[in-house]
Simulated scan of single mutants.
Amino acid sequence: MPGIGKPSANCAPRSGVWQGLPIHKSGGDGKGAAIWDTKTYGNPGAYAVMQEDGNVVVYGKDGGQGKGGAIWHSDTWR
């Protein structure tokens, strides 16, 4: 599918600054505008994980599965 990046089990910001897990509209040059995000910016060290149950979760810096600290989730678990 054009404009969709390669999926990854874990996501962390390239710049070192969490930007809210945005989805960008493809402009053909890879610089499309953000069309959606988790609105979780301002959480240094946050990271996203697709868990084995299918739920995508954004955890704070010290959070994680079994530790708590989720700041957003997709509610798509099965």
Score class of each variant (00 low, 15 high):
5 G>S: 13
5 G>A: 13
5 G>Y: 10
6 K>C: 01
7 P>K: 15
7 P>T: 14
7 P>N: 12
7 P>I: 11
8 S>N: 05
8 S>Q: 10
9 A>M: 02
9 A>T: 06
9 A>K: 14
10 N>D: 11
10 N>L: 10
10 N>C: 03
11 C>T: 04
11 C>L: 13
12 A>Q: 10
14 R>P: 00
14 R>F: 06
16 G>I: 04
16 G>T: 05
16 G>A: 09
16 G>M: 02
17 V>A: 10
17 V>M: 02
18 W>D: 04
19 Q>G: 07
19 Q>V: 15
21 L>T: 01
21 L>P: 00
21 L>M: 12
21 L>E: 04
23 I>W: 10
23 I>H: 04
23 I>L: 12
24 H>L: 14
25 K>N: 10
25 K>L: 15
25 K>Q: 13
27 G>F: 10
28 G>L: 06
29 D>G: 11
29 D>N: 12
31 K>F: 15
31 K>V: 11
31 K>S: 13
33 A>L: 08
34 A>L: 07
34 A>M: 10
36 W>H: 08
37 D>G: 11
37 D>C: 03
38 T>I: 08
39 K>M: 09
40 T>K: 00
40 T>W: 12
40 T>S: 09
41 Y>F: 12
41 Y>T: 11
41 Y>E: 10
42 G>V: 08
42 G>M: 06
43 N>F: 13
43 N>A: 15
44 P>T: 09
44 P>K: 09
45 G>N: 03
46 A>D: 03
47 Y>E: 05
47 Y>F: 15
47 Y>K: 08
48 A>L: 13
48 A>V: 02
48 A>N: 02
49 V>L: 14
50 M>D: 04
51 Q>G: 03
52 E>T: 03
52 E>S: 11
55 N>S: 11
55 N>V: 02
56 V>P: 00
56 V>Q: 05
57 V>R: 01
58 V>K: 04
58 V>D: 01
58 V>T: 02
58 V>L: 07
59 Y>V: 00
59 Y>E: 05
59 Y>H: 03
60 G>V: 01
61 K>V: 04
62 D>P: 00
68 G>A: 07
69 G>R: 04
69 G>W: 02
70 A>L: 05
70 A>Y: 09
70 A>N: 08
71 I>M: 08
71 I>E: 06
72 W>A: 05
72 W>L: 09
73 H>N: 14
73 H>W: 12
73 H>E: 13
74 S>K: 02
75 D>S: 04
75 D>V: 02
76 T>S: 14
76 T>A: 12
77 W>G: 13
77 W>K: 13
78 R>L: 03
